[in-house]
């Protein structure tokens, strides 16, 4: 059932405070030949990302305490992670004014893509492949 594994499966990092989302996406992405690292704890996310060197990061931007936005800003500011594409997962509408304000007011580059919850797996897979396809030397 699983697709043939390429020489090196792309590593996707998922950061979301809902364990159910992580479980869902982990199973779905692994079924489609990706490797997944994930955490529900945003505080431990930077260490995880530094260590795993993911090819792409899926990030929920509304999380308690250490918010997704702060984490996003941290990723953008890290020399090792800044070039890693980020796909935002959120219950917010992609056109939500608040969301656009977030990049503009914080002077951050916009994310590579945006996926609205509930997540349509086919759409997610297409988006991940498209974003990864733009990266040199990586093909799923």
């Amino acid at each position: 059932m699983s697709e043939p594994q390429p020489a090196r499966a792309p590593v996707i990092a998922i950061i979301d405070d809902e364990q159910d989302i992580i479980t869902y996406l982990r199973v779905a992405l692994e079924d489609h030949g990706f490797r997944v690292v994930a955490t529900t704890d945003p505080a431990s996310a930077p260490a995880l990302l530094e260590q795993a060197c993911p090819d792409l990061i899926c990030l929920d931007i509304l999380m308690p305490e250490h918010t997704g936005l702060a984490l996003y800003a941290e990723i953008m500011g890290s020399p090792r992670l800044a070039s890693v594409p980020v796909v935002i997962l959120s219950g917010l509408n992609a056109n939500d004014e608040l969301l656009n304000q977030v990049w503009n007011t914080n002077n951050l580059p916009a994310p590579a893509s945006f996926i609205e919850k509930p997540v349509d797996i086919e759409h997610l897979l297409r988006t991940l492949r498209a974003v990864l396809g733009q990266q040199v030397g990586v093909a799923p």
Partner: peptide, 24 residues
């Protein structure tokens, strides 16, 4: 509508994971 989205994602995820488990 927004709140229901989160639950829907959870339900869809549950179905997917169950069905994936059944297949495997």
């Amino acid at each position: 509508a927004h709140g229901i989205k989160n639950i829907l994602t959870g339900l869809e995820g549950g179905m997917y994971v169950t069905s994936s488990g059944l297949k495997r």
